[in-house]
Amino acid sequence: MKAQVTGFLKNIVNIKGTNKGLLIQLNDMASYTEILDELKKKVSDPALEGDAEVQIQLAKRHYSDGQLEEIKKVIHDHSKMKVISTKCDVVTVEECNRMISERQSETYVGIVRSGQVVKAKGDLVVIGDVNQNGRIEAGGNVYVLGRLKGFAHAGASGNKEAVIAASWLEATHLKIADELETMTDELDSLSEQPEMECAYLHTSGKIIIDRLQELRFLRPQISTFKGGS
């Protein structure tokens, strides 16, 4: 492990193969222009021929959205590789505060009736039904201990990982981040007994409904308990 890290530090840009495609590691001690130059050189290497999917590891350095775009552009312009994700080990204070408030949970006990709106910054737990034309909205996840028959919006501040879970999921509208799904008859037919279900945003950009049991595989990060006992 140690040898690998020192080895990584020697290079400004490191490319390695993994079982999930290529991994590009950027040295967080190098200057940004150095990184861009080196990156261009490395990805242009004809030996890398192929349309591999790559992940970029940014390590402990914060890049602006503009810089990230620039990095992706260099890769896309000089190779056939496709960037599928970036991973950074630091967050800004702003992001951090948002993450904290999105992790907090608020509870509403009662029926959310037609014309009523219940909002939470973080997760929202509703103990009761959400009736048609009633609306619940959360920055984080939405959990309904009851029948969800109205409009539910999770990840309202943009979190695409947010989910909507309900004892009985027969919402007229589901929204996660900016993606809206109206429950057409087609979707309804997916489950005659919409008991204990959850909705999440699939990487395809579509909202998918699955059994609640699948949640721990789909969104393991929701669980705040680590390990077993």
């Binding site: 029926i111 009736r113 037609s114 014309g115 009523q116 048609q132 034309n133 009633g134």
Partner: peptide, 12 residues
């Protein structure tokens, strides 16, 4: 029934 739900919400 929908309108009753709306009214009950207001009455509550």
């Amino acid at each position: 029934v929908r309108d009753a739900d709306r009214i009950i919400g207001l009455l509550e």
